[in-house]
Design a binder for these strands. Structure first.
Lengths: 208, 208
DNA sequence: GCATCAATCGCTCAAAGGGGGTATTTTACT
DNA sequence: AGTAAAATACCCCCTTTGAGCGATTGATGC
């Protein structure tokens, strides 16, 4: 079917897991796994010079973390696909990994057959993730609740674009005094005392 | 295996697709699909009173859009799982859907067998999405490039917490003059003229 | 019918912010 | 060795902002 195998590298400190994964993957039709590293430093040194398509990356490594390795590797090889394969399922690990350029995020309870499917998915431009991970990511988009009125939201959006009292007032055909009142109400609803904090909170809560 | 079927409702204006889907799903072991609606209004009116676990929602509907329907439905039934099933694969459709509370996002080229698997996934707390959709979402986390130095980033983060010149200066053991200089440099690098806009841009570009 | 809230407009004043400069030292890259 | 960038510190001047006040009108809800 495929003329070329997908070339995979593994970065994983646990000897047993690393060896098992290597054997399973390399033994499967269409997949080749000739490189495995027990730490980030050695992976960083070698992978950029190897013909590798996809990296399976653990997060909890001795020395530099898998997230840091991912960041550095993506800087050197932007087209390399890196799948995090880890037990860490906390939000921080997930979001940091995605921010530094991971293309997928799987938990270690993924069974070997699925793992191969997911590697293929990444290779084809997809982004496999364990269902719990996907739910975390999706939930991060949810709007909790919006205490601001429409007018207030409108004003806040303009502030975020850098407009001042007067400019906002002109834009929405209001007196600058009214704009000021709206802003004061915004601050009070968001429990902040200035513009910078208001915009920060508003964005974090997806209000603007 | 399972004592209870998963109860599904469909919102889809195309008669053929709606009927085909209904038949396929309702004919499958462990799945029940007794409700199907050709528009958002009728779905809104009925679904809150029906024993439904999962809704398959089209986006392009006559009258209110599937996204609007999702928003309203989730307000009334926060625990209802809604999977968008649509041809729309633009970023706006995807992100708006997730923001209003969709639990999954599948493209209409998903084959029926996979669809059933994905319905089960949602029912079990997962968030199925087509691989292209997943890649879009994951890419939205990527940092494009960061023109700010570490110090500048540190200062900007403090500004976003509502601190002023003096407070930042005390926090990082610097002269307020220096803090001001950093801030001026931040403005210049981000091409903005004030704090509000700086924080807005910085967050949008994932710099803080 | 009464309360609540959004939306509107107004005032004063001290504090903070932003634009324009200049300049030294340290670090980093080549 | 030389240049560039980052980090540090300081000056003047004017604008903007936020706090603390008060007030009216029109919806919306109970």
């Amino acid at each position: 079917m495929s003329l070329e195998s997908i070339h995979i590298a593994i970065v994983e400190d646990d000897n047993e897991i690393r060896q098992t994964l290597t054997l399973i993957i390399d033994g499967s039709q269409g997949f080749s796994c000739k490189y495995a590293f027990p730490d980030g430093e050695s992976a960083m040194a070698s992978i950029p010079n190897l013909p590798v398509d996809v990296v399976l990356m653990d997060i909890d490594l001795p020395g530099m973390s898998g997230i840091e390795v991912t960041k550095q590797l993506k800087k050197k090889c932007p087209d390399l696909d890196i799948i995090m394969l880890t037990v860490q399922s906390d939000d921080d690990s997930i979001f940091e990994s995605l921010c530094v350029g991971a293309s997928g995020y799987l938990l270690k309870d993924t069974n070997p057959a699925d793992l191969l499917v997911h590697i293929k998915e990444v290779f084809d431009g997809g982004s496999p993730m364990s269902s719990q991970v996907a739910r975390r990511i999706i939930n991060s988009f949810r709007i909790i609740d919006n205490p601001l009125s429409e007018r207030e939201t409108e004003v806040l959006k303009m502030l975020s674009k850098g407009l001042n009292y007067k400019e906002v007032a002109e834009e929405v055909f209001l007196s600058p005094h009214t704009v000021k009142t709206h802003i004061k109400n915004i601050y009070s609803k968001l429990h902040v005392n200035n513009r910078a904090e208001a915009i920060y909170k508003a964005i974090k809560q997806k209000l603007i």
